[in-house]
Design a protein around this nucleic acid. Structure first.
Lengths: 167, 167
DNA sequence: TATTGTTATACTCTATAACTATA
DNA sequence: TATAGTTATAGAGTATAACAATA
């Protein structure tokens, strides 16, 4: 295995972020696998907790495409963690509710996730840790230079939709 | 658009890293698009600079599968930025060399990338910036809690390779 | 006509398998 | 037999398009 030195990667911000994101995602996926859910399941499940959102609203909050949401909900419903209920006001829509089991799983998952975060951030001294999170929020949060929701570079290309950008 | 508050995202380390990685990647892709190369092209191109590595060695250093490397090299060669030369010692292998144009592009790209990094990190005061990078390296670098090369969670699953793990 | 959720499908990315030519 | 690079293709993820029911 080829390993780059710490000095070398310090100047490669892309690498640092990519690696941090991937490695943490891998740890999260592994940690949540014991509960038989994916990070995305957890994301949707927590946001559905209030129990008054439609599938579409939930998709928007969780930053998922509505078709991706269908797949996610199929899984959650199949696993007995969430339920689709007809919306009284709009018979096209469906309210998403977490089941008792779903709430239990979310609670356990919360503990697991906190443990992972704690474990990861433990390498930073208390004070440095706070400063680190502050900096990250400054970069990623509202009005930060990395807050922009630029078009996903990875998304399937639109069907040649030429010269209709600023029209 | 739904926007989570800075307070809320501060506790969501996964989100912070994912967003930072994605947003920076988007900026990089956009910035490098003017030079008609992708971040991966740049990565390979710089590492090929010494000009004495085979395609396989290059793939290992750039952390790419050898088949992905083929595609990348096809692009680079098609764009006239790199060249495949038969290896004198091993007629199966090919040495990858950057062309004059390739070196020019790398140089320009280096400037572009430094500009993006500078622009992004500019929101952090000088001292905080150094501490931030130190912390990131501590997390991601050698022996850090996020240095592990766990199996890519996104990779196509192996063809059911059961119970042959620790055998 | 517009919108919610669904199904079918297309596209991107990356890796495994099979192959050719060397070693 | 094993390895370097290639080609073909499969798998995973996510999005667009078309559709049914309803607004």
């Amino acid at each position: 295995m080829v390993q780059r030195s710490n000095d070398e990667i310090r100047g490669d911000l892309s690498y640092l972020f990519d690696k941090a994101s991937q490695a943490l995602a891998a740890r999260m996926t592994t940690a949540l696998a014991d509960l038989d859910i994916t990070p995305r399941d957890y994301c949707v499940l927590t946001k559905a907790a209030p129990g008054e959102l439609t599938q579409g609203e939930l998709a928007e909050i969780a930053l998922l495409d509505k078709t991706t949401m269908v797949v996610t909900m199929d899984n959650l419903e199949g696993a007995g963690l969430a339920r689709r209920t007809p919306c009284p006001e709009d018979r096209r829509a469906r309210i998403v509710q977490t089941t008792d089991e779903g709430r239990e799983v979310v609670e356990k998952a919360r503990t697991v996730i906190d443990g992972v975060y704690e474990d990861v951030l433990a390498v930073l001294p208390e004070k440095q840790r706070a400063a680190f999170l502050d900096a990250l929020v400054a970069l990623v949060g509202t009005d930060g230079p990395l807050s922009a929701v630029e078009p996903t570079p990875n998304a399937p290309r639109r069907r040649s939709q030429r010269s209709s950008r600023s029209a």
